[in-house]
């Protein structure tokens, strides 16, 4: 069944269409949540909250393609994750001055599998991970990140810098494929 048709039926309150959409998008969204929230239980809770909001606000959504739907749902999930993290008061980051930005070894990461990259990101501490996800993967600006997380812009920059350093360190230490390939 086409997604457009499913969205239309879900808007009309069809439970089967809603379930179909949930089955279709749940795993993908679970991965997004897991990138932000470490524990599986918390990720599931966030997933449920996100889907609840998605179905509640579906009437205000104009379907313009699969990418738009995916983007909107992902945004909802990220917001829910940030809300949960804020609720848990994990963003107790001390304000820091701008740190020197370390360029990420794109080549090294390009050589890694999706699973390896995912594991590397999840291993980062919550503050680093969140800033890294928002800046590098979601493509947000430091200003936006600072506003979302309730931190200073400089802190966001320094967190990103530290996240990159730690990621590279982990790349070498964990003996991932990249290190192995490099040694060869």
């Amino acid at each position: 069944m086409e997604i457009a048709q499913l969205i239309k039926e879900a808007k009309q309150g069809s439970a089967s269409a809603q379930k179909y959409l949930f089955d279709l998008l749940a795993d993908k969204m679970m991965l997004v949540c897991r990138r932000y929230v470490k524990s599986n239980e918390d990720a599931e809770e966030v997933l449920l909250d996100g889907f609840y909001k998605f179905f509640k606000n579906l009437n205000h959504f104009n379907f313009q393609g699969d990418a738009a739907l995916y983007g909107w749902l992902k945004k909802i999930m990220i917001n829910e994750c940030l809300m949960l993290l804020r609720k848990k008061n994990v963003f107790t980051i001390v304000t820091e001055n701008d740190a020197a930005d370390h360029p990420l070894e794109e080549e090294a990461l390009n050589n890694l599998s999706a699973k390896e990259i995912f594991d590397l990101i999840v291993q980062l501490p919550v503050g680093y991970r969140t800033v890294f996800n928002l800046y590098v993967i979601e493509g947000m600006e430091h200003k936006e990140i600072a506003a979302l997380m309730g931190i200073a812009e400089g802190t966001s920059k320094s967190q990103l810098s530290k996240a990159k350093l730690l990621l590279q360190k982990n790349l070498l230490q964990n003996g991932t494929g990249y290190a192995k390939r490099k040694s060869k």
Binding site: K19, F22, D23, A26, D27, K28, M30, L31, R34, N40, E44, L47, L48, E106, L109, N110, L112, S113, A114, K115, I117, F118, V136, I137
Partner: peptide
């Protein structure tokens, strides 16, 4: 075209999926 898009296009990952989708639904 690199690692980010691969991460974005990742639909599911073994061990990172919903444990019981029906229960969640």
């Amino acid at each position: 075209g690199g690692w980010k898009s691969r991460l974005e296009n990742l639909d599911e990952l073994s061990g990172e999926t919903c444990r019981d989708k029906n229960a969640l639904w």
